[in-house]
Design a protein around this nucleic acid. Sequence first.
DNA 1: ACGATGATGAAC
DNA 2: TTCATCATCGTA
Length: 186
Amino acid sequence: MKREKLAEKFFNRPTLAVARSLLGKFIVRKYGGKEIALMITEVEAYDGFKDRASHASRGKTARNAPMFGRPGYWYVYFTYGMHWLINIVTRETGYPAAALIRGGLTVDRSGEPVKVSGPAKTAKFLKITGKFSGLPANTRTGFWIEDRGIRIPKQKIRRGRRIGVDYAGKIWASKSWRFFIAGFRS
DNA sequence: ACGATGATGAAC
DNA sequence: TTCATCATCGTA
């Protein structure tokens, strides 16, 4: 099986292009000597200083600093008092942008496909917490993204508005910056 | 439809 | 230092 780790240059591209091309890639977590893997099926883009739905829109803080940093690094944050959410940083250093991983597909012990639907469930499934925020995505940190040769045909890719960002105002809330594989809307 | 549950940031 | 808000989920 092809297993090609995605490097910084993959993420140092326009955020929408990165988000779209993350569909079908595998997010892999080394845990307890084993690997937990999920094929990414849903992603949202948060891009730039002006995106009012983005944590970066109010400037750099200790929490969101990774968004302003190098591409290919994790931005993991805590929300709703109980959930961790996973983002991978995009674009060049200094430009705040990231892609939120919202869902994936795995297989259970008997080989049946199992949907992991929702960003908090995704983080829980991969056993990810804030410890990873600011770390690079690679095998050394034990948490990375790889290409296993699966290509999602264009006609299977859907897009729509981002979830839970109505507070960001009409312009930003209505951006069609959420990408998912047909049949995997969470 | 709503409660759980805590960090964040803006207002006071 | 207080308070409303929040890139959610599970139960109803």
